[in-house]
Design a protein around this nucleic acid. Sequence first.
DNA 1: AAATATGTAACTACGATAGTTACATTATAG
DNA 2: CTATAATGTAACTATCGTAGTTACATATTT
Lengths: 135, 135
Amino acid sequence: MKRNSRFSLALHALAHIAAMAPTRPLTSGDIASHSGTNAVVVRRTLGALREHGLVTSEKGHAGGWRLTRPPEEITLADVYQALGERFLRLEVEGDENPPTCKIEIALLGQVDSALNDAEALLVSRLGKTTIAKLI
Amino acid sequence: MKRNSRFSLALHALAHIAAMAPTRPLTSGDIASHSGTNAVVVRRTLGALREHGLVTSEKGHAGGWRLTRPPEEITLADVYQALGERFLRLEVEGDENPPTCKIEIALLGQVDSALNDAEALLVSRLGKTTIAKLI
DNA sequence: AAATATGTAACTACGATAGTTACATTATAG
DNA sequence: CTATAATGTAACTATCGTAGTTACATATTT
């Protein structure tokens, strides 16, 4: 198994859908076997992209997955954000125990700021490559 | 529990060691109770920093942890790197199954390049803050 | 009606990490 | 020189996130 394969799975799937483009839609089974994973996992992942308008799916015979836009108009950043990914984040239980120690607050502020800058750069870099360029 | 708390635990610990500086060394028990974690976890984390020359530890009565350099000379990037952290990395089992699909190779190349740039920015930003500034 | 898709819930498997227990080792105080 | 208090470390448990799996309902086409 692999951690955080959603992003690369999604990109891989989109690229193959684009490559197969006008011929026929790709089924989750096709994509799964090509990516070495499971059809349900593919449907879950692409389902998130569908909710953000990047792909459509059709049920039944000759159904499958298609892009909603030409692959030149889908960037890697679109996919990253559609999946709700956030690679850079300090996982420090900021939920139930808000930090009280002044040092910890200062620390989190400094680190958060650095993480946000790096995350912004990441998205900006991903925004410069499209699915079309992967083919 | 929290994921990836090593980095913030390490920073928190160093800052408190620095704040307590000339008085006495801090024990792993002190640090653990202040950070809401366990003394063994603290020793493990600070042990990694000791291997990179950031702190020393003394056993026995009146033992504990001290900085090896003034806190003005320890940056957050030093800590990040001493822990071997790499927040930005595509965890895509690149080990046993090297990708053969051309699309996947292109994809990994593009994404890796973006991740490396963002990681470099992160380290650079962390290098601009010192432990002293947290106090 | 049969075949072939997706949609989705529920469960299992696995790995990473933190936390815990236990004990050996070392150093200091008195 | 013994009691105390610290680190060092191995071994184990607990928890959580994610992928993978099974099963079945639903929809669509032939």
